[in-house]
């Protein structure tokens, strides 16, 4: 979306990362780097291998071959340390519906070993920043999806991870709240947090510094959105995506 000067410090280095399930190669020797403070869009059709790749980068799944270093940790040998240093939020599960906002914040802060002092400072800060003073003691399940996702994003950042992985964070969110969510992403990126994000909204692909598009387990394209549009002679990222993904042989 803009041409912020990117830091040249690499925080994710992926080299020929591969995952096989029997004969099926879910992720096929992908290689790429992500820089500090970058907003990196990780796109692909359903079944292209995004989730498998993302699970490996979060230390949740052991690769069949290839390597990756995330936040300075080797995903083979240091999966546990890696998990302490990244944040994650998904679309389906992000917060506990039957805990209040403040309980969710305390719970996650506790999991990440924050001290009691840090927990009370941080939860107060978060509630004030989001203007949720009145809602703090409400159950998360009663919040509209958009608000829930904003809280979940803030919670994923509580332990100040170097990288945050966002898996379709804006699905089903109204157009205004979706944009407010992106304002929050920009603010975090400006502060140096690396954002690794998947989305099915192609307008959001434009908001990323760089975008990769996976087809059948491989990364078929990786560049700035404007470059990709130029390269594929497309008017929009939607068109770029369509040109690449319709060639896919497998579907999920």
């Amino acid at each position: 979306m803009d041409t912020r000067a990117l830091n040249n410090e690499k925080v994710i280095v992926v080299d020929k990362l591969t995952k096989r399930f029997g004969d099926f190669v879910a992720t096929d020797a992908i290689s790429f780097d992500v820089y500090k403070g970058e907003i990196f869009g990780f796109l692909g059709a359903n079944g292209a291998g995004k989730t498998t790749a993302m699970k490996m980068l979060c230390g949740l799944l052991t690769p069949s071959s290839g390597t990756a270093v995330v936040a300075g940790f080797d995903i083979h040998k240091q999966a546990q340390e890696l998990k302490w240093n990244i944040g994650y939020m998904g679309q389906k599960f992000s917060l506990y519906d039957d805990l209040t906002i403040i309980e969710n914040i305390r719970y996650y802060a506790g999991i990440y070993n924050l001290s009691n002092q840090q927990i009370s400072d941080k939860s107060e800060g978060l509630i004030t920043r989001l203007g949720l003073q009145k809602e703090a003691k409400k159950l998360v399940g009663q919040l509209p999806t958009g608000w829930k996702q904003k809280v979940a994003f803030s919670v994923a950042l509580l332990h100040e991870p170097r990288i945050v992985f966002l898996d379709e964070p804006t699905g089903g969110v109204d157009p205004i709240t979706r944009r407010q969510f992106w304002d929050m992403i920009y603010e975090s990126a400006e502060k140096g947090t690396t954002i690794f994000i998947t989305t099915h909204y192609m307008d959001e692909a434009e908001y990323c510094d760089r975008v990769s598009i996976m087809v059948d387990g491989k990364i078929e394209a990786l560049d700035k959105p404007a470059e990709l549009r130029r390269l594929y002679e497309a008017e929009s990222m939607d068109e770029v995506f369509y040109q690449l993904a319709r060639r896919a042989k497998r579907s999920e």
Partner: peptide, 10 residues
């Protein structure tokens, strides 16, 4: 079409 990629949605 919720959660479905742009090609499959089309």
């Amino acid at each position: 079409t919720t959660g479905v990629d742009p090609v499959s949605r089309r």
